[in-house]
């Protein structure tokens, strides 16, 4: 058996080991990779930056712990950005676990020294509306009456008793909508119902798997910007000048991608080399 034949029959567990080492090893080193920002991420960052203090931002957490490594850094950096700009934040989820993800992100950001000094108050500066069943129908209901879609918040308090929600009836009273999505219901539904039907200004953070499907929506009328996977999260951290988890993880991403590309090249070389032999 020649060299290339052996390469083609390489045990998949050897490749798994290479990938595992390539992912795990960089975590032990405090090395940051250069992260170049793209116009899609700048679009969202600029949209938030252009909001005046006191503007209301709605964040929908449409994912669960399975997508945390990609979407939680996005949630945390976006929340920090909003609070640092003194924006009022309304959190919700179309996925049952979404409001929990929101609370985890809040726990991290409210303990950030720069945000802690602001002494933000629940119900005044931020609120968690919780989860309500109905998928895209909830978005449509929010277009006419948010209080009907969410009669009470995550803790069971009537929305009429929450100061932040008193003047908020529908998307006309919300200055920016940010959707963190890992599937259905997610960004596509927010585009179709909130952006296209009710003309909400919308940005999205997506898992890398579904990000390419959302690129056609980019444009002022549908999506002002998109954060695609961990790279998108890292870009946002760089723009906010607060490198955190996503930037730290990007070193492992880079090394593991190099390993994958190496094996793709080796596999193709071996395939074409052995094909010539077989044909002859």
């Amino acid at each position: 058996m020649g060299f290339f034949e052996r390469l083609l029959k390489i045990d998949r567990r050897i490749i798994f080991t290479f990938i595992a080492v390539a992912i795990a090893l960089p975590l032990f080193f405090n090395v940051s990779m250069y992260v170049e920002t793209t116009s899609e991420v700048v679009g969202i960052f600029s949209a938030v930056d252009s909001l005046s203090p006191g503007s209301k931002v709605l964040i929908s957490f449409d994912y669960d712990p399975g997508s945390m490594p990609e979407l939680q850094p996005m949630a945390e950096s976006f929340l920090r950005h909003c609070f640092s700009r003194d924006l009022k934040v309304i959190l919700m989820g179309l996925w049952p676990q979404g409001p929990l993800q929101a609370n985890w992100a809040l726990d991290v950001i409210l303990n950030d020294p720069d945000i802690k000094v602001k002494n933000l108050k629940y119900g005044v500066d931020y609120v968690n509306l919780g989860y309500t069943a109905g998928n895209e129908v909830v978005i449509q209901r929010m277009g006419s009456d948010i209080h009907a879609a969410f009669p009470v918040d995550y803790y069971g308090t009537s929305l009429d008793e929450i100061p932040l929600m008193r003047g908020v009836r529908n998307f006309n009273n919300i200055d920016f909508v940010y959707n963190l999505s890992a599937g259905y219901p997610g960004t596509m539904e927010w585009v179709q119902f909130a952006a296209d039907r009710f003309h909400a200004r919308l940005g999205a953070g997506n898992t890398a798997v579904q990000a390419p499907l959302m690129y056609p929506y980019l444009g002022k009328k549908q999506l002002v910007g998109i954060l695609g996977g961990m790279k998108g999260a890292a870009e946002y951290e760089v723009l906010a000048q607060r490198p955190a988890r996503a930037v730290r993880y990007m070193f492992g991403q880079g090394i593991s991608h190099a390993v994958v590309i190496f094996f793709v090249i080796i596999g193709n070389l071996a395939f074409f080399a052995t094909r010539k032999k077989k044909e002859s």
Partner: peptide, 27 residues
Amino acid sequence: GYTVMSRMSLLIGRMDYIFGIWLGMIR
């Protein structure tokens, strides 16, 4: 390419959990 990035991200998340949160080997 995006799918590979997504899967690697999930693996990084688990590795960070094992070596960082669980075993406390990462600062």
